[in-house]
Amino acid sequence: MPEAKTRRAAAKAKREGKAPSTQAGEFVREEIEHVREGKHGARSAEQAIAIGLSKARRAGVKVPAKKSSRKSTGKRTASKKSSSAAGHRKKVTQKSSAKRSRASTKALKRESSTSATRKSLASHARKAASKRTAANRSAAAKKAVRTKGAHARSAAAKKAARTRARS
């Protein structure tokens, strides 16, 4: 269950008109913190991010599924049609047993916490960015500027100036 602080921050981002990925970023940040604190581990930065995104989806953030996992067969779509024709059924979720919950917590604790280091997160970000086109990255930056606000834009400009001065 995400912390109340995380849910509030995501709700604030939604009110400000930020993208779903930005809203989900709060949940990912919380997950990274959990890995760093040793509450549980993750094998890679990507896994920690995936856990955070999963929490965001469960909390109602409209984050699209990963493109590669959207492959659907003809059988699936047919079964979806028949189930929707039968009317909306309420999904029944059972609470996980204590034994199962304990086992999954123990398994996660055995994982390392190095996946949440600045180095591993930075390398993951570089790898993810390299898969995107320059136009796509540029469009994302332009949208960020539109939704940032004057104060945050000023802070970002100062940070960019410091970065340029260093190199």
Rank of each mutant, 00 (worst) to 15 (best):
R8L: 13
R43T: 10
R126N: 07
P20D: 12
I51N: 02
S104I: 13
A140I: 12
A10T: 11
K91M: 09
A157D: 11
G52I: 05
R8G: 01
T147W: 03
S44K: 04
Q94H: 10
S83G: 07
N136K: 14
A4P: 14
S115V: 04
A13E: 06
T117G: 02
K80A: 05
R36S: 11
L53G: 00
G60Y: 00
L53T: 00
S79Y: 02
T147G: 07
A125G: 07
G17V: 14
A78H: 03
E46H: 03
E31A: 15
K39P: 00
A9E: 12
A103M: 08
K99D: 13
S68G: 02
K62P: 01
I51R: 08
V92K: 14
K109H: 05
K75E: 05
S69Y: 02
K81Q: 08
R153H: 10
S112A: 12
A86I: 00
G41T: 08
A107L: 10
H124C: 04
A10H: 03
G149R: 11
A165H: 12
A50L: 11
K95I: 13
R102A: 15
K119R: 14
F27V: 10
A125T: 11
A125Y: 03
R57C: 01
S79E: 14
K148A: 15
K80Q: 07
E111I: 00
A139W: 02
A141C: 06
K131Y: 01
R164N: 09
S123Y: 06
A98D: 13
K95F: 04
A19L: 13
K90L: 06
H124I: 00
S72G: 08
R118C: 02
P64A: 04
V92N: 08
V92Q: 12
A48E: 01
S138K: 15
S83C: 04
R132T: 08
R7W: 00
E111H: 02
E33A: 14
A150I: 11
E3H: 09
A152M: 07
A161F: 04
G52T: 05
A50F: 01
S167K: 14
S123V: 11
A139H: 10
E46I: 03
S101A: 14
E31H: 04
G41R: 03
S138T: 15
V61T: 03
A48C: 06
R102F: 05
S120E: 13
A78F: 06
S54P: 00
A128V: 14
V61A: 02
G87M: 05
A155R: 15
S21H: 08
A45I: 04
V35C: 09
G25C: 10
T114I: 04
H34R: 15
E37R: 15
A103T: 08
I51A: 02
K66F: 05
S84E: 14
S69F: 01
R43S: 09
K75R: 12
E31N: 15
R76V: 01
R15D: 13
A122S: 11
S113D: 09
Q94Y: 06
V61F: 01
A157F: 05
K66P: 02
S130M: 03
A157I: 15
A45S: 15
K5W: 07
S123A: 05
A129L: 12
R164M: 10
T93N: 09
S79G: 01
H40K: 05
G87P: 02
S130Q: 13
K109F: 01
G41E: 06
K99L: 12
G38E: 06
A150T: 15
